[in-house]
Design a protein around this nucleic acid. Sequence first.
DNA 1: GTGAAAGCGCTAACAC
DNA 2: GTGTTAGCGCTTTCAC
Lengths: 332, 332
Amino acid sequence: MSVTIYDVAKEANVSMATVSRVINGNTNVKPTTRKKVLAAIEDLGFRPNAVARGLASRKTTSVGVIIPDISNMFFAELARGIEDIATMYKYHIILSSSDQNTNKELDLFDNMLEKQVDGVIFMGGSISEEHVKAFKSSNIPVVLAATVDESNEIPSVNIDYYSAIFDVVNRLVDKGEKQIGYISNSSKSSIENSKIQGYKDGLQENKIEFDEHMIFDGDDTYQAGIEGVNHLLKQEPKPTAIMTSSDEMALGVIHGAQDQGLHVPQDLSVVGFDNTRLAVMVRPELTTVVQPMYDIGAVSMRLLTKVLKNEEVKEQQVILPHRIIKRSSTKD
Amino acid sequence: MSVTIYDVAKEANVSMATVSRVINGNTNVKPTTRKKVLAAIEDLGFRPNAVARGLASRKTTSVGVIIPDISNMFFAELARGIEDIATMYKYHIILSSSDQNTNKELDLFDNMLEKQVDGVIFMGGSISEEHVKAFKSSNIPVVLAATVDESNEIPSVNIDYYSAIFDVVNRLVDKGEKQIGYISNSSKSSIENSKIQGYKDGLQENKIEFDEHMIFDGDDTYQAGIEGVNHLLKQEPKPTAIMTSSDEMALGVIHGAQDQGLHVPQDLSVVGFDNTRLAVMVRPELTTVVQPMYDIGAVSMRLLTKVLKNEEVKEQQVILPHRIIKRSSTKD
DNA sequence: GTGAAAGCGCTAACAC
DNA sequence: GTGTTAGCGCTTTCAC
């Protein structure tokens, strides 16, 4: 049997209440008694039981994190941002991968409620009404990270995906590209929809007619990039530039093009998205949209702690800045 | 105030004990009463409080996972294996990154004990006596994943790192390589020590004298690979083959060599370690040692569940098989 | 500044 | 098959 607050109280000749006060840093304790208690704690090797504390106080200092796939670089980086801030504010993380499956997401959320988490950070493809309903009826705060809720009812942290792609198109056109392909991800999430809209509007802005053959539906993997470039290069007219919705696909595009004897960027410009570490692990190095994953995670968690501590939060829908980093996979 | 087991009991006209039995799938309940209770649960929207249950039963069905860095591909993959098996056995994961810092590791472990986790999966560079002491005195099972404890006191799941590198050296020599460099990671973990020993013994086996200039101390990053190859290529005689302790460094080596105008593998053979997804995201594709990260995670978690359920476990120190996968960065 | 006592929501004997 | 009851280890009024 492990040592409890009661044992400490007895050892220190005080009441349980006083021990509790000491543990929790309550100021209303005489320095001498505090010392006595601390000594007893040390002597007995007392370790507070967070479960009992959670039951009594109705706070567990743990937050749930629902993530599509922790083995995905992009999300892992986000998770690290979440974790670091959580640690800073003394929260623990309960982590679960959902594989973007709505039922699983809802189940996990429910499980986390059973565990009495104080709040949840949610990452996922799309937010349905069902999600919103579940979140709102849960009585705990939920923050979306790199995930958009079109109803704008749930606090979230994102970048402006639409503008990011729009900007890329402009940039490409400035460098003389006229045939611009796009390899999307098939999730049909609202993020992806924004990107596609940005692509279309970017073309229109530059008086280039949108051609649906210039879009290939990928799944954010390297292999999809290879398939995408092979497919797009068979179209007539061929693209002279290809944008992708993830860096990993962009690497596939570069290698797929090179495998066909093309030179990047002379024969084909390539632009990625995210600026994961992959972007510099390829020759030529990848021009890409910088999405601050770590920061998105960190800011989401910070936002959650604010809500948890009833601090004032100015904006519920945070948009972090993005930028394009020019490397060697596009023309100078 | 949320609905409790007591409310359900009242609603269904039974005792709390019966409700508890129904929730926990206890068979000693008449089907009709079970139905009544289930109906009441449904009606009231009752959700069991896992914290209260944890306090009463002294089991939380959550396990702690201490990991060096969740944003590292290698560990993220391990984590996914752990998670999937945990989910299968209805355990939750409390995840924390330690940055391989001993104090942080010990602190995290302590925090997890406070949270009353049922067990812990630990990943880290080296296991000191302090670690072993903490683990053994905790009264909860700990399993090491991709982490070796030289004292052999803690259950663990690994591959045979020594043989893996030894095999690589043999393979390289078979293909005619005589000058073989190695880019290590500076952690001086016992895993890295095994690898270095495998390297030395592999050379000796083939009557090649060990030359300390052929070892470069890296930190498993792409950049370290580039620095490593630059350094090694300045030695006299130059290496004709370079092995690394991680795939990411191997990519750095390949690109570093190519940046100097060398051809891989004609001018330089390169072998990685781990077989992360990176291995095929480079040209030429990387010959590497297959370390089954996901499986290591999964097997560790399975091992932990066995201990938790008092099932018999045959071997405490599991060694999973490894193999070398030949791709294009080494000579045929 | 400190103590007494009533829970927090559930499980687990034990009794019937 | 079902109910009673005593905790699990802590926090939190409320007195003093």
